[in-house]
Amino acid sequence: MNRITAGRRHPLARYAVLLLALGLLGGFYTLAAPTSERADAAIASGRADDVAEGRKLFEQSCSSCHGLNAEGTANGPTLVGVGAAAVDFQVSSGRMPLANPGAQAPRKPTAPWVNDDTIRQLGAYIQSLGGGPVAPGPEQVDPAKGDKAKGGELFRANCIQCHNFVGSGGALTQGKYAPPLHDATPTQIYEAMITGPQAMPVFNDSIITPEQKRDMIAYIVGVREEPNPGGAGLGRIGPVTEGLVAWIVGISLLALAAIWITAKKRQAHQ
């Protein structure tokens, strides 16, 4: 019992659970929609009660901003045509439902009602409204199957200008930002590329192929799990933290050393 509790806190536990969940989710899709690339087929084979359940969930949690029929309001865009992939990305990363309006929806812990089933149902409902990209299968996002070096070249060409060279994130205009990729699951990375959430542009499958996307995922996951051979990573954001360390650690330690070398010893009063 204790071992399980301790194991739950292990840093890799999150990934393990997520991978398990994704595996299950993906497995469902593979069973339910053997040709998962095709949106139509997904709708066709999506169970009718999923759509109905999804609609209920939508009305409870999403419709206040996105409109009763997902047609969009002043507070939220239309969701017709965004596809189940967008639903999975936004809801599984906790961005939706939105807690506070702001420049950008942050990643946060998911809402209590969110689980694999509800995401699937909600996705089925949105998919039924106007199609759109669907969530990728586990094969498609398996980092082990990608080529890191090729993915790295694409990552540097298309991603790092916003997300930084290892995906530590960066600033955009007017309070918007490119979020760090540290917590994004391979599926979420894939979904973000095909759906273009918020300010992020779209990288559709006809230009950056699914295999190439898997290469990029392999690179992103590989590099973020790679240890820092040179010591603490200092946030992996480049020279800013290095400069801070040089002053705060380096110069301070050396000033202390100088003080020790030159200090007058307290005179002992006998």
Binding site: Q161, G169, G170, G238, P239, E242
Partner: peptide
């Protein structure tokens, strides 16, 4: 490559 750049590209302090 002159075609690419990373966010937060900084000089040394």
């Amino acid at each position: 490559t002159p075609a690419d750049i990373s966010a937060g590209s900084q000089p040394d302090f």
